[in-house]
C-alpha cells in the first residue's frame, strides 16, 4: 500500500512555477531520493508535500498527519538543553520517550548541554533525532546530511534503514550518496517548469489562491 502518492504535481516558489508534472508514489519501506541542481525546486516540492504551501496543480494523497518534515533549519532553541529541546518536540507530537532517539543519534552524552553550545553537526544530529520522536511514517528530508561527518552520516543512514524496515518511507533531497542502493531516484531537472506560465493569479487575489 502506498503511503504517499503524488499525481502530476506542479509547485511554485515566489509566484513562478518550479517543477511540474511530478508523479510518484512511495510505499512502506521505500525511499525516494530527489536529485537536481540548486534552485530546481527540491525544497519547494518538499514544503508542498509537508503541507506548508498548496500545490499549483495536481494532487497529493496521503493519510492526515503522515509526514514529518525536516528543513535546513532544525528548529532548536539555544537556551534549552538538548534533552529539553527533544522532549518539547516529543510532547508536541504526543509522545514522551526520548532516550532511544538520543542514543540513536549518539547524543546521550550531550543531553544536558545547552543547544547553543553544540557544533553545527551536533545540532543537525539533534534535528534528525527530532524526526525519530515524531513517530510519523513518511519523512520528508531536505538535505539531512549537511555539516555531518562521515560517522554521523552512517548513523543517520542506519536510523533511516531502521525506519524503512519498520514500515516507514522517506523522500530525501540530497546531493551526496547515502549508501542506500535500494532507494529510487527522481531527477527533477527533467521536470523543470516551462517558462512563462504564471503560478497563481497575480495581485490581491494571490493571497487567497
Amino acid at each position: 500500500m502506498s503511503l504517499l502518492s503524488v499525481q502530476d504535481l506542479a509547485v511554485a516558489r515566489g509566484g513562478i512555477r518550479a517543477v511540474e508534472g511530478v508523479t510518484f508514489a512511495v510505499s512502506q519501506g521505500e525511499a525516494l531520493i530527489l536529485r537536481g541542481p540548486n534552485g530546481v525546486g527540491k525544497t519547494t516540492l518538499l514544503r508542498t508535500l509537508a503541507g506548508l504551501q498548496p500545490p499549483v496543480a495536481g494532487t497529493i494523497e496521503a493519510e492526515p498527519d503522515a509526514i514529518a518534515y525536516a528543513a535546513h533549519a532544525d528548529g532548536l532553541k539555544g537556551a534549552l538543553s538538548v534533552a529539553e529541546n527533544l522532549r518539547f518536540w516529543a510532547r508536541i507530537f504526543g509522545r514522551d520517550k526520548i532516550d532511544a532517539s538520543l542514543s540513536a543519534m549518539n547524543l546521550t552524552d550531550l543531553a544536558e548541554r545547552p543547544a547553543a553550545h553544540l557544533s553545527a553537526g551536533q545540532k543537525r544530529r539533534l534535528g534528525l533525532a527530532r524526526l525519530l520522536v515524531t513517530g510519523r511514517k513518511v519523512w520528508a528530508l531536505d538535505e539531512p546530511t549537511v555539516s555531518l561527518d562521515t560517522a554521523s552520516v552512517g548513523l543517520f543512514a542506519s536510523s533511516l534503514r531502521a525506519h524503512l524496515a519498520q514500515g516507514g518511507a522517506a523522500i530525501i533531497a540530497t546531493h551526496i550518496d547515502l549508501g542506500l542502493p535500494e532507494a529510487r531516484m527522481l531527477d527533477l531537472s527533467d521536470l523543470r517548469a516551462q517558462p512563462g506560465r504564471a503560478a497563481r493569479p497575480a495581485g490581491f487575489n494571490e493571497a487567497f489562491a
Binding site: 503541507g51 528543513a71 532544525d74 532548536l76 508536541i92
Partner: peptide, 16 residues
C-alpha cells in the same frame, strides 16, 4: 524568533 530558527515551519506541520 520561531520563524528564524525554523520552529514555526515545524509547528505548522505538527499535529496541533
Amino acid at each position: 524568533l520561531d520563524h528564524e530558527d525554523g520552529s514555526l515551519d515545524l509547528l505548522a506541520t505538527a499535529p496541533i
